[in-house]
């Protein structure tokens, strides 16, 4: 295994949203804007990398019968840290993400990676895997957030910088309301499936 291909795998084949189909709740709930998407992915990335490293370092000591409760306690500890840091230093972001910061603790991506990867591999590769999966998560969240924000408000504003501003505001308000999230991810998933089927047909 070389580290770079392990990192890329987290973005492409094992992409948390389109490959593994895990962690849908935060994906849909916080992607009303690119800014929220970045904040959420940053929190998730910290927890994922830390828990992967910890679980992997302790994998010989953890008895396999009680491993799930132990994983959850490890994850909950890091989530509490993220929650307190966000509350103290980024109060507007914390208010916008609301209940979804503490809910990182039940994000299936994190416990899924602890069980499927960190529990079987060494610390270095678990670290790389955590980084790769987090990057995949960030890219998908930014994509969905970008689509919804630009269709809903006509511009993308991230941390007070206007990145893109459309000449005409389409103002499809539905896109930043809950139905827009379901619609966006449904269409994106259909496109991903189509591309995969085409690739398979070409490969024989």
């Amino acid at each position: 295994m070389d580290p770079l291909s392990e990192y890329i795998r987290g973005i492409t084949r094992d992409n948390p949203i389109f490959g593994l189909v895990l962690g849908l709740c935060p994906t849909l709930a916080v992607t009303t804007s690119v800014e929220n998407a970045i904040g959420m992915s940053a929190g998730t990335a910290f927890v994922l990398v830390c828990s992967n490293v910890f679980v992997s370092a302790l994998r010989k000591q953890i008895p396999s019968a009680v491993r799930l409760p132990i994983f959850i306690i490890i994850i909950a500890t890091f989530v509490s840290i993220v929650k307190m840091i966000m509350q103290a230093y980024f109060p507007p972001m914390y208010a916008a993400l609301g209940v979804f910061i503490p809910l990182i603790v039940v994000n299936c991506i994190i416990i899924g990676r602890a069980e499927a990867y960190a529990n079987k591999n060494n610390v270095f590769y678990s670290f790389i895997d955590g980084l790769g999966i987090s990057t995949g998560f960030l890219l998908v969240l930014m994509l969905i957030g970008g689509i919804r924000e630009i269709l809903g408000t006509g511009q993308i504003v991230t941390f007070d910088y206007t990145l893109i501003s459309l000449p005409i505001n389409p103002s499809v308000t539905t896109m930043i309301l809950p139905p827009g999230a379901f619609l966006t991810i449904g269409i994106l998933m259909a496109i991903v499936n189509y591309q995969r089927a085409k690739k398979r047909a070409k490969g024989g």
């Binding site: 189909v21 539905t174 309301l177 809950p178 139905p179 379901f182 619609l183 991810i185 449904g186 269409i187 998933m189 259909a190 496109i191 499936n193 189509y194 089927a197």
Partner: peptide, 22 residues
């Protein structure tokens, strides 16, 4: 179409339901 079958279809149904609720 076969690429819409499964999860994408479920999400498109959810879109309609969610729109009704909103």
């Amino acid at each position: 179409p076969s690429s819409v079958r499964g999860l994408p279809q479920a999400f498109l149904i959810a879109t309609m339901l969610s729109m009704a609720f909103v």
